[in-house]
């Protein structure tokens, strides 16, 4: 299990999945807007966030349907050219969520599919991260998932750090938190 305080993990578990209740649950009417008596009936289809669904699946109270971002159409798209697919709009935590669903054994073919997807996208991502200039054309950035964005930024930062090391810039810098304020009240020299 990921770190209890991990922000990414917490936000990832907020993604919703569509689920089917296998048993009735009393007193949980807030989950299902169509229920009339504050109960969730057996067989009702409800969108639940992953943190709730995962525990209930383990207790076999409900069944998770495979989310549409992992369906056959998306898989075909990814097979055609992994690097061009806009995964962020499908699900910002594509891989993490996929891994969770594999753990809950929603679909046995999901694991290998995720691996090939990342492999297909990784090389392209790395090339772009190491060559992209600061003001450069970053049209593909919104297509990346959260995980890939972090990879991309790590790559770009290391290039920046390398350049700074080569040029021997100043080592000590002002704490970042003070940055905003100083810009505001700085007076020009000639005033």
């Amino acid at each position: 299990m990921a770190n209890y305080y991990d922000i990414q993990d917490i936000l990832m578990q907020d993604e919703t999945v569509s689920t089917v209740f296998l048993h009735k649950a009393n007193g949980a009417g807030f989950l299902d807007p169509s229920s009339e008596d504050n109960n969730v009936a057996r067989g009702s289809v409800v969108d639940l966030p992953l943190w709730l669904a995962q525990d209930l699946v383990q207790r076999q109270i409900l069944h998770i349907k495979l989310p549409s971002c992992f369906n056959a159409r998306v898989r075909k798209e990814v097979q055609a050219d992994p690097a061009c697919v806009d995964l962020h709009s499908k699900c910002p935590f594509y891989y993490e969520m996929g891994c969770k669903l594999v753990e809950l054994s929603v679909d046995p073919t999901l694991g290998p599919f995720l691996l090939t997807t990342l492999q297909g996208r990784y090389k392209d991502l790395l090339c772009k991260a190491l060559t992209a200039t600061l003001s450069g054309n970053l049209k593909f950035l919104p297509h990346l998932t959260e995980e890939e964005t972090r990879l991309f930024e790590a790559g770009r930062d290391s290039v920046k750090a390398f350049k700074k090391w080569r040029l021997q810039g100043p080592r000590i810098e002002k704490a970042a938190i003070l940055g905003r304020k100083r810009n505001r009240d700085a007076t020009p020299i000639w005033s």
Binding site: A28, N39, W51, L52, I61
Partner: peptide
Amino acid sequence: SSADENYNGALIHHQSILRNKRCLLAYMYH
């Protein structure tokens, strides 16, 4: 017969409490 059904409902609320607690703690921690 309905003990299980009640139990399921209570479980959902219990999980929600745990989830909210985790978020609050993470907020303070970071």
